[in-house]
């Protein structure tokens, strides 16, 4: 008779780095709602000043404080990431589960749709949505990226759901008269959640990167939103004279995406009981 063991998850320093990086970005993003060192439109600083006590990250060529822009950029990255993953997740999970339950023909059709949409670069889908909405706004960017991510989530949900549906415990549940609704909510979703959660976190990272790319192309959040992508674009003309203007938003983007990926790993280890004792 084996004893019931419920060891605490081993804390992995790499995961803590992930929590830390994401935590810092979240902290700056939240604080930016209440306080920033300067107003975003404050052009009182000198042009292209290097980092100093007055301007922690220097200034851009209009004399605006870069640290202020970085903080607001953190807020925008998080809002876009959460929004896009929420939209893409809901569309993807619903269609993926439906595909797994559908008849053969409908399943094949949905699988083909997922594959075709995945073959479209997410950025291209996003640009089409921005074009269709005829204006670049934060909401449009979120919607566009959400739609762009949904087939990836849909495809992985479909595969994971099919794998769970083939398990004996689903047959066992059906034999005891469990309805399909209960099977999805009590058996399928909890069993795909650890894998799906990791994937959604990775999608969050992709969404943040894609938003930076959209903003870089001028299709993202319009001014006065200071997205990291737009900061990169504005700094590219002065990258030799004022490298910090491009370096800092680039590093911020890098830190958030790496942090999210490490956090995804950590969450998986924590929430999958079969890995707890391993």
């Amino acid at each position: 008779m084996s004893a019931v063991t419920r060891s605490r998850p081993r804390s992995n320093p790499v995961h803590w780095l992930g929590y830390g990086l994401v935590g810092i970005v979240v902290l700056f993003g939240v604080v930016s709602f209440f306080w920033t060192p300067y107003a975003l439109s404050d052009m009182a600083g000198g042009r292209l000043e290097p980092p100093s006590a007055a301007h922690w990250a220097g200034t851009d060529r209009l004399g605006r404080d870069l640290f202020t822009q970085l903080m607001i950029g953190a807020r925008i990255a998080l809002v876009v990431g959460c929004g896009a993953v929420l939209i893409g997740g809901v569309i993807g999970i619903v269609t993926g589960v439906l595909a797994a339950f559908a008849t053969r023909v409908a399943d094949d059709a949905l699988a083909a749709v997922f594959d075709i949409l995945i073959a479209f670069p997410t950025l291209l889908i996003a640009m089409l949505v921005v074009a269709a909405r005829e204006e670049a706004s934060l909401g449009t960017a979120i919607l566009a990226l959400g739609i762009g991510l949904s087939p990836i989530v849909g495809r992985i949900t479909r595969i994971l759901t099919k794998r769970v549906l083939s398990k004996d415990y689903i047959t066992a549940a059906r034999v005891s008269g469990t309805g399909w609704g209960s099977i999805v909510f009590w058996h399928v979703l909890p069993n795909i959640a650890p894998f799906l959660g990791v994937n959604l976190a990775l999608q969050f990272g992709l969404a943040v990167m894609a938003e930076a790319s959209l903003s870089y192309l001028g299709l993202g959040a319009p001014p006065p939103n200071a997205s990291w992508g737009r900061m990169l674009q504005e700094a590219q003309g002065t990258v030799y004279t004022a490298p910090w203007g491009a370096l800092l938003p680039g590093l911020a983007l890098f830190a958030l995406v790496i942090g999210i990926n490490l956090l995804a790993d950590g969450l998986r280890d924590r929430f999958d009981p079969q890995r707890r004792d391993g």
Partner: peptide, 15 residues
């Protein structure tokens, strides 16, 4: 109701 051969796979691993 049915009792299956392999109880490890007939029980939901996450519940």
């Amino acid at each position: 109701a049915t009792v299956f051969q392999e109880p490890l796979t007939a029980l939901d691993p996450l519940m």
